[in-house]
Simulated assay, not measured.
Amino acid sequence: MNGIRGAQLVSALKSPNQAAQFTSSQWSALIACARAANLAGLLAERVRSAAIPMPADAARHLDAILQLGRRQTQSVLWEVHGLQRALAPLNIPVVLLKGAAYAVSGHPVSRGRLFGDIDILVPREVLGDVEIRLMVAGWMSAKSTPYDQRYYRTWMHELPPMVNVRRGTVLDVHHTILPLTSRHRPDARHIIEAAQALPGLPAIRVPRPEHLLIHSIVHLLHEGELHNGLRDLFDIDGLLRAGALETDFWPRVIDAAHTLDLTAPVFFGLHLVHQVIGSEIPAPALAALQPASGAQRPSRSLTWLYRQAVRPESEAAESLLATAARLAIYVRAHWLRMPPHLLACHLAHKSMMRLKKNEPAAEGRA
């Protein structure tokens, strides 16, 4: 990778002027590293905004990424209008989450951000009605086995993923932001009721800035797969930068974290983004979010694990430390999501399914 690693990518994204003297091979390595971290769009946005000179090949590549981002935003807007038509008759708030919320609201975090699924949050009591309306509109469940259906509907915070039969778009329908079996159980009604309306889309809402931040942190820390971990940290950094422009942002973050009973993950998430990216976090805010345990400093070992695990995919694949860290975080995420007895049963089932799936292939090789 010609010496371009995750740390250098972070540095280039924070200070694009550093790339002004890069050679063609260094630009190629930087773009490859950014792609591996799903940050190529953000890199393109930042170097173009800073008017950084670059080789023609690099310029064409980054311009193509920006074009892809614009097309993706148009696609998301199309889908959101479809959700408006499908769900408006229910007269409920439909709250966009994560990438879709950033894109449709024009949030600064959306600039250069590429994403796949569309996530929405709806009141749990109308989940059945929402699913029926979506099925009529052409969305079908992507999970067909009885176990997967029971797993999502009984224990998780969302329906099984739904796929549009005509366009192949994936939709995740949430009724809260963490699994029902999780050690943290935030009441999503606070997010839904505070969500802000969008012009021209009466049914569609986006979360308040403090809720966007908290959900981004919680998603990162409770997600077992960290292939987008560095991208998620830059999301959090962007949400912090935008929020800091509002005079009452930090009091709202602190109040929302307490209301949702999520002070511990928010405390650690803010510490982590400061450690990895250098985001500015006011000391009084961290003090106000200090966990009930009284720990003034987040776990050094957990911080180290995340710093190893959020490396870009290409770099993580070459590192035994990153591989071990990702495994540890995968286990930790499941430990947070489920009580021990349920976790043991779930992992045993998944292991059996993998063995059965590999049996025909093994016989074929023999």
Rank of each mutant, 00 (worst) to 15 (best):
P291S: 09
H334W: 11
Q296Y: 11
A101M: 07
Q275Y: 11
G269L: 08
G269E: 05
E363Q: 11
R48D: 08
A295R: 14
N38A: 10
L272P: 01
E210W: 12
N2S: 06
E45A: 13
D255P: 00
R85Q: 13
V47T: 13
A64P: 05
M353C: 13
L198Y: 06
N91G: 09
L347T: 12
D129T: 05
H334K: 14
P284Y: 06
S144D: 14
I254V: 15
E158S: 08
P55S: 09
V10M: 07
L178S: 06
L321K: 10
V310N: 03
M135Y: 11
A285C: 09
R300I: 10
A333V: 02
I120A: 04
H334R: 13
I217M: 10
A12F: 08
L233F: 09
I254E: 15
P282Q: 10
H334F: 12
P146L: 03
Y152S: 05
I214R: 13
A188I: 02
Q72L: 14
G106Y: 08
R46N: 01
I329M: 00
R111S: 09
G224C: 08
R205S: 04
A295V: 00
A264E: 15
L62M: 03
V94K: 02
A288W: 01
E125K: 10
I329H: 00
E225D: 15
Q74N: 11
P312G: 05
L171A: 05
D148P: 03
E193H: 12
P179A: 04
S25V: 13
D148C: 09
W139T: 01
R231S: 07
L30P: 04
S319R: 07
Q275P: 05
V165G: 10
V76L: 07
N17C: 10
I236C: 07
A366W: 11
V126L: 06
S182M: 06
V94F: 03
A288C: 06
D235P: 12
L180H: 08
Y330V: 04
S141A: 11
L212V: 04
I177W: 01
R252S: 14
Y151V: 02
H175I: 00
A29C: 07
L262T: 01
Q72D: 13
L83E: 07
M338H: 13
A88Q: 13
L178M: 10
K143G: 11
D119F: 02
L9V: 07
G168I: 11
V206M: 09
Q290E: 14
Q74M: 13
A309E: 05
P55Y: 02
G106Q: 01
H81G: 02
I132G: 06
L355M: 10
P251W: 11
L62H: 01
V276Y: 11
T23W: 01
P53R: 02
A264K: 14
G99R: 06
A316Q: 02
A242M: 03
S49F: 06
Y102C: 05
E79R: 05
S11N: 10
P282W: 11
I277G: 05
L302W: 01
V170H: 03
E318F: 00
H211A: 13
R307F: 02
L68F: 14
N358A: 12
K143V: 15
Y306D: 04
N17D: 15
P123L: 11
A20L: 02
H211G: 04
R150M: 14
T23A: 04
M54D: 06
I65K: 08
L114N: 08
